[in-house]
Nucleic acid binder design. Structure first.
Lengths: 241, 241, 241, 241
DNA sequence: AATGAATGAGATTTCATTCAT
DNA sequence: TATGAATGAAATCTCATTCAT
């Protein structure tokens, strides 16, 4: 199986009869949308390919015409759904001028708005759940999503530390601390939350704000805070790869 | 029971079972251990009950002698694996005398040691992954695990706030912020971590320490910190149910 | 497998330890009673041997101590339940002095009372249902039950015809006509009747009476018909729903 | 879908199916015919769905393409096999002009010809046998077969009574008396008869005739009896074994 | 004599994938 | 291009029978 086969390329290039050009171009999009919704709802293994086809309004066979297997379909969904947003974040970082604390707040709200709330957030759940059963998908997801995201936040923290805005902390660890609550809320939303179990009062955005406040309380440099609390972890730099 | 000739049920005389009834008392434990390991590795749906039996060294039928269905087996695993630890935490809270910050640190380390590191932590992954596909299990897990854990941490925060040690925050939200990174690390460990993908340097305990430091930086009351950072969320009490 | 193995003979004759002589002798009876009830309720194939043992208050292993297989258990039930009644009928025929019509009425009522109403009647259902799946059982049942019963009624009819009381008919066919409604009612009782479906008004004894009246109307010789007794069932219309 | 190495789901490339989609339209009929034959032969519970598929010349999965469960397959068989005949009987009753005794004879012969002799008659055996184990099927059969048949015969008897042709009897009871021998013969045919046990001389049609003669002897009103035809079965003695 | 833990073939049903049309 | 009938391996759960104790 090719590493990153561009799914729709499975379509043979023969210029077909022109009479029903109607939605032929839209097919891949429709299939990806259907697949995203179902993968998020049921998980990867539990989603039946026939159901994906049905929701997209085509037959089972047609699905296999566009994507040669369920795994390739999933990869296409990931690319379609997450890749662009990560690129956007990197651009925000490159262009931002002011305080990193502000950018951090902005990036996280943006992520929540565009990913966490929608079905795209459910992909995290899928991968977390099924990584061990589908190692090839897991590797793909690490390469295409996790690593770039991590680099983005690490860069942000480093800029803040370089300018003296943030205290010096272990960058890679801090990235995990930053990501954790967002991912956690997303997972909740797509697992117990979707069953309407567990805490209907939970307002995710409010939790995110609280987290940012608490976190920045510990992150901002003494100059920003007037006085720093003692810290058990001695300041360090980013661990070398 | 053989009947008419074409019935293929004629059972060949079984080649004498090697050692029957070896350890009647130990069976449930062995089955639960095998089930825990496999559920964590593969998830609930993807684990075949025959494989559980095989790993416990018994036949398919024997498993069903002890647990009437895969769902009941899973519930038994959850009770066996998580229930006692939650009770212990509640006892720690009841008996603790000193600062809540200290207890918080202690509880979280304990949890990481006893749950997060071992296979028990993988149960969180399973439930997050399969809650929507197995609503009855989801409800069971909320009742037996999530709700008691939440109550434990909420109680801890409230005691800290009552004594003036902590600033006043929305308790339920703060619980989510506290839980999130631990759960996140656990999930990592049992998904990508188990594939040995993604960040082999990650030292979970170090991340937890960092999180506690950052968090306490934002959580400790002004008196403890000498000076408090400005907070966007106005101080409040626990949201009423 | 021996043709007619006397089931309890499977018990080895070793004079066992005398301390628990309690109900050892009663065991076969208890097992047969439990088996009869369950066979009638569920059929032969659908009755689980463990359930038979449980209802008799012994363990699965003990059942196999007395009867070497489910088939042998069934045969023992048939012998125990039906054999004696057939012998009784033959004695009634041998001793009866008066009109055969009277004896016929008496035999059929007796049968209904002792067999049709009780669980023994259910055995007919079992055999009808499972004869083709268990040919050995079928042969056994024909030899032990059907053939003797047929001989009994045939003898009765022949005596009636010989004395001029009955018209001359094909004896074997008439036996079928006589047996049919009784068997039919019994089957009803143990299938749809037991589900409480179908006609709660059905009073089996009344139907039997009607059948005898109608039948005797056709069976009695012209000489007898002149003086025919008024029908036991008073003329009526269809019972209101 | 192959996942981790130990997953035994790696599907070997199927050796090209011989002839797909041969007769899409004919499939349901073929499946119903196969199912009818096997259900009658072995009963509902003892018939394996795979065997039905095999007899119809398709694979296990194909059967489930047409009927979602064994129970639904059975219902379809019942509808296909019995429903139309019942409707025909009702039409015969509506259109008949002459004596009811004649119609009764005609209906019963017709039933024997079309149902009793063929495999359709075996369905009665199945339902009698398995009603208690499959209550939903029992209810279905009562609604679709038993009740309509009963109504048909009740209507016939009532017309005969209204015109003075028949004596006044309890209609519902008389219906049972009428049905019993036919059902009894059918059951015989599909149980012991099919094993070639019990009375190879039995000529079912002759028995039916005898039953009708005897029955009508008791059923016809005195006025009719004067002119009753001589019994169609000439007097004889017991057939020699 | 009695127990009951253990076995393992087998039953129904599901679903990714293929391929003739 | 598109279809959807067909396949068959696999998964959960059952139960008659055995045999060590």
């Amino acid at each position: 199986m090719p590493a990153v086969p561009n799914a729709p390329s499975a379509r043979p290039a023969v210029a077909a009869a022109p009479q029903r050009q109607r939605r032929k171009e839209a097919r891949p999009q429709e299939l990806l949308a259907a697949a995203l919704a179902l993968f998020v709802e049921k998980g990867f293994a539990a989603t039946r390919s026939e159901e994906v086809a049905a929701r997209a309004g085509v037959s089972k066979g047609t699905l296999y015409l566009y994507y040669p297997s369920k795994e390739e379909l999933f990869k296409a969904v990931v690319r379609e759904t997450l890749a662009s947003h990560i690129a956007d974040g990197q651009q925000m970082l490159a262009q931002h001028q002011g305080a990193m604390a502000e950018l951090l707040r902005q990036v996280m709200h943006e992520w929540w708005q565009r990913i966490g709330l929608g079905p795209a957030g459910g992909i995290s759940k899928i991968m977390t759940a099924e990584a061990r059963n589908f190692p090839e998908l897991a590797q793909f997801y690490v390469d295409e999503v996790i690593a770039p995201t991590h680099r983005l936040l690490a860069g942000l923290l480093e800029r803040g530390m370089a300018s003296g805005e943030f205290r010096r902390v272990l960058v890679d660890d801090a990235v995990h601390v930053l990501i954790a609550p967002m991912l956690h809320l997303t997972l909740q939303q797509h697992s117990f939350g979707a069953c309407m179990l567990h805490d209907p009062d939970l307002d995710a955005r409010r939790v995110l704000d609280l987290q940012l406040d608490l976190m920045l309380g510990g992150l901002l440099a003494p100059a920003q805070l007037q006085e720093a609390p003692p810290l058990s972890t001695p300041p360090g730099t980013r661990r070398p790869k």
